[in-house]
Write a protein that binds this DNA or RNA. Structure first.
Lengths: 235, 235
DNA sequence: GGTTCGTCAACTGTCGACAGTCGGCTGTCG
DNA sequence: CGACAGCCGACTGTCGACAGTTGACGAACC
């Protein structure tokens, strides 16, 4: 046996691109950069004290992720959110989460059950003292756990991008109107179905859970973001 | 009414980043760049007659897409394919394609049916004279059509990335052993279920179709790419 | 007054340069 | 002969610079 580990942690050189991307993403999901906002490379670089190159690289990644859109020769813009975007997003989210819960169902063990239950308990206990974004965070962590437990790297990656977008959308909503404790408790039936290893029930519970969130977000969004009047374009 | 269109097409300035990404992607799905291969920025830039900046930006996008992985201070590498990667990929593909076929089922019209049927007919008619990659291309086009018909932009985007990876994997397989005509005809039951607007049946057909491809690819891959011997790491 | 043209500032697309780092090679020493 | 330190080439990370384009503003002209 060798020593359990080397005494030193490898020196980690933070990659500027990663830092910039994280910062830009944070600005978006915290609502400081609203959809449609232009991201001026030079200005962003100046504010962060770096040159434009890493900013552009970070923006390129976020472009592929869908957080930014590039208009050639006009720069990057924060992706605009429409009702259809929300519908598309939640449609995909539903498919992926059903996949995740089914996978988790097949692979669940005692440790996994404990983690999930702890998360639900945490949500129930803490939820009343938290801000809505913090609650959303805990909520999404539960779903992220399911992806982890399903042991599918790609699913996890995809869900991580969806999670970011969900948080971005939430940041656009002024209030949330839902009973936080009710929302927290709503996860229990999903876990119960997983414990019972009843894949069909787990899928059904998840479907209902996501669909409910979908409708809720959709309603809030449509009421708070009336669609801009779209005049008939001359034929 | 104005004239049907302006007489001039807007001058299009091809973005170097797009060109480079397309070229790199082509190199990968055509098997010229094998998984694990290092992509040296300066060399790539030189070969394409450009500077490193746009190469890096293209690579950043492909990194987020999953085609390349970045090892900090060591450059970009073509993503390695393992059996688990294939399983993860097809697991997600299954979820997304079920979603797509369900959506298509709900929104199908005569024109859509015609397009799908034409594609199947094309596959049946042409398949014998084509190379395997060309067959795969036609096949994937059918699935891409379903995503389009489901009218979900995000689903379409996700499937496009999956399609690329499927083609990349196919490029790694020496032979394919399947009766092309049989594969082509296998799409008909899916379309029939869509025409009948029977969502459950459509999902079931799709599930069977994808699962079959999954197993086929998996078997070929495991037989042609034996896992490198992984020695027990000392505890 | 409304339209058209020219000017201009701002910003993107692209490039070459430079410093820092990593891994391999070599030569030396035990 | 093997281990180890030091050197060196290759390549990445980052930067500043320059050219080209775009949209806006304002002047000239019908």
């Amino acid at each position: 046996m060798t020593l359990s580990a080397t005494p030193f942690v490898p020196v980690e050189v933070p990659d500027l691109v990663d830092v910039i991307e994280a910062e830009l993403t944070r600005a978006i999901v915290e609502g400081r950069l609203r959809p449609g906002a232009r991201v001026v490379e030079a200005e962003t670089a100046r504010q962060m004290g770096v040159s434009r190159a890493p900013v552009r690289e970070a923006a390129r990644r976020m472009e592929r992720q869908g957080l930014l859109v590039a208009k050639p020769r006009h720069g990057f813009f924060v992706r605009e959110i429409t009702v259809k975007e929300i519908d598309d997003l939640y449609g995909v989210r539903l498919a992926l989460e059903e996949c995740a819960v089914a996978g988790a169902c097949a692979r669940i063990d005692a440790a996994g059950i404990a983690r999930l239950q702890a998360q639900i308990d945490l949500m129930c206990a803490e939820t009343l003292g938290l801000t809505p974004p913090q609650r959303i965070q805990l909520d999404l962590q539960f779903h992220l756990m399911l992806c982890e437990l399903s042991d599918n790297e790609r699913l996890l990656r995809l869900f991580a991008t969806i999670e970011t977008e969900v948080r971005m959308i939430i940041a656009l909503l002024d209030n949330h109107y839902q009973d936080p404790l009710f929302v927290a408790k709503a996860h229990q039936p999903i876990l119960d179905a997983i414990i019972a290893q009843d894949e069909a029930a787990a899928r059904a519970q998840m479907r209902e859970h996501i669909t409910s969130a979908w409708h809720h977000v959709r309603d809030l969004f449509t009421s708070q973001h009336p669609q801009p009047f779209r005049e008939n374009e001359p034929s």
